[in-house]
Nucleic acid binder design. Sequence first.
DNA 1: TCATTATACCTTGTAGTTCAAGGTATAGGG
DNA 2: CCCTATACCTTGAACTACAAGGTATAATGA
Lengths: 118, 118
Amino acid sequence: MRARASNPNFMNGVPELLILNLLQWREMYGYEIVDAIRQRSDAVLEVGEGVVYPVLHGLERDGVLKSHRRRINGRSRIYYSVTARGARHRAHLSQTWSSLTAAIQKILRGGQHGESVP
Amino acid sequence: MRARASNPNFMNGVPELLILNLLQWREMYGYEIVDAIRQRSDAVLEVGEGVVYPVLHGLERDGVLKSHRRRINGRSRIYYSVTARGARHRAHLSQTWSSLTAAIQKILRGGQHGESVP
DNA sequence: TCATTATACCTTGTAGTTCAAGGTATAGGG
DNA sequence: CCCTATACCTTGAACTACAAGGTATAATGA
């Protein structure tokens, strides 16, 4: 019931949705994804590493992502990219998100259901 | 990581948001809320009684809702309505929802971040 | 030179939430 | 008289986001 201090709920499944949509364009590594989500959302969305890494591992385990290690400036990075199955999963997830938010928006707007005055 | 069979995630905090926005217009009882969510969303959103009742109890405990029992056709119903504090809470929650979905949408759309072609 | 910061990976435990699957009781229709 | 609809409720399980840790290397700067 109690909203959390940082992100006030609403975030269930969202990290997975965001990650898949970021990776659809080009491969990225975990640390980069954390930054990308913060920057592209103007710091509205803050998804920590403790969220991103487990999601990446889970998606790879499920065959949605694949990874390969690369060395950049003596630094080891693990780049993730979307598999064919992952592309289908991303499309399905994004559509579900659209559908749900549209339905929610409909209720938020109210209208023609007997509400007299706000 | 694994999406659930029924509602594929994305539903965290949403019942609270929906309930508060429904009750902003007129008082309703639990069973009625369950039906209203299903009907107004064209069955896209399905929030069971096992979700609605605990949320109602929690919101009343927090002073966001108040309730009174009424007898209709020999049936006992518990009607809930929004308190003054609840009205503020509803406004704040709705605004957060708008802000978050806007930020998410921005990332879903992609654009100007180095993605070559879909 | 040495300490600090930034990069980059990771795991653990906790708290909160949804959900299915139950349970109780009354009213009304067939 | 049974079954459905109405109307309330609780429990346990599963999942998830999150904070708070931990490791190691490169670069910065004092």
